[in-house]
Design a protein around this nucleic acid. Structure first.
Lengths: 203, 203
DNA sequence: AACTTTTTTAAACAATTGTTCAAATTTCGG
DNA sequence: CCGAAATTTGAACAATTGTTTAAAAAAGTT
């Protein structure tokens, strides 16, 4: 039976935690199973014992990541009580929280889009992100003549304004254009700035 | 097959062209030297004969990419004849041109930032991108009290507004939110929209 | 033509890496 | 405590992969 829940951190969870770290930092192809075993400080074979293969383990980690990224946003974007700007503000705050906590996320996910096995699309479709109320509201606004640009522009802008800083962060910090703590400050400023900018784009 | 040297592109150039395709599509770690040889339709050993190693070959490809991305922008950002908005408009146009022609570029470069060997920083520093006139103008504006936010916000916004669509493109098209040709149209619209949005952010 | 040099090829090497296996060790119900 | 099941270990396998080598082929030179 399951005697694995007793250790302070079960072997399985230690492997998973290590996999999160290594996969996120190096991507799938550059990650060696031995790296994960070393990071978790467990025997190499245990990785295949608990998860059947490197690929299966990766899928778990990726699913987690995509889930975190898509699920909450999907909820926000489908809340019919909220206006476009209210949705945006909430989404921006959630993303900034999430990305401050997991700074390597964007690079990680983008890295996976490139290989294109594309767990992202699967999950994004599963949730109703691309037929969300947010999208519908934007199209409605366009119909009414109150929005001059294609709704997709707005969607891309929301994502771009939130995510790009995290993609650029390594470069910004390596070039000392922004210091470590200052980055956090700037991101917190953006919680208010981005909705403001979006308002300008809509009006 | 005799006397092939003069008729086609040189073997060296064929390898390079193949390397551009495969590296850009799959990233360094996921690319096999045999993939490149197959794509170039040449003998495996020739890759090591002309370029000394997979890594050396990659450096050439990466240097090209970064060069294309940084050099022109550096010139624009250091043109003292141009205002902030004029610089932005020019940069936006150049980037959109470049990225429409090389849609895989952003993913490719981002993919390399993650591994962090980081040829990007080396080249970006070599050119004066991070002490450019553009940056100085923004800081000056801030000093005068005519810009309420940190200049870095503006820089991140320019890049984010231009680049993000190309990162998101695979997802957008897989979900048929944007069709193939429509994407090009949207990007062309952004040539005018982004400077407009930036104006709003500055004013 | 005779030669030297450059380019190309096939094969193999050496290292890496995902995976498996059998034995050892630990855990746990009875 | 016993024995069965689960877990852990060390070793090895099998496939992949970057690189090298030596010989053949082609191109260039005198």
């Amino acid at each position: 039976m399951a005697g694995k829940k007793e250790q302070d951190a079960s072997t399985e969870e230690r492997i998973l935690a290590a996999a999160r770290i290594v996969f996120t930092r190096k991507g799938f192809a550059a990650t060696k199973v031995r790296d994960i075993a070393a990071e978790a400080d467990i025997n190499l074979s245990l990785v295949n014992y608990y998860f059947r293969s490197k690929e299966k383990l990766f899928e778990v980690v990726m699913a987690e990541a995509v889930q975190k990224l898509v699920f909450e946003i999907s909820t926000i974007f489908n809340d019919k009580e909220l206006s476009i700007l209210e949705k945006s503000a909430k989404a921006v705050n959630y993303y900034i929280d999430l990305l401050l906590e997991n700074p390597d996320f964007p690079l990680f996910l983008v890295n996976e889009i490139i290989t294109g096995d594309d767990m992202f699309t699967r999950y994004a479709q599963q949730n109703t992100l691309f037929q969300s109320d947010m999208i519908k509201q934007l199209f409605a606004l366009k119909e009414e003549g109150k929005l001059s640009v294609h709704p997709v522009h707005i969607m891309m802008n929301v994502i771009g304004l939130v995510v790009m800083p995290f993609l650029a962060r390594p470069i910004l910090e390596r070039n000392e254009l922004v210091k470590d703590q200052e980055f956090v400050t700037l991101m917190n400023e953006r919680r208010k700035l981005i909705p403001l900018w979006l308002k300008g784009m809509l009006g």
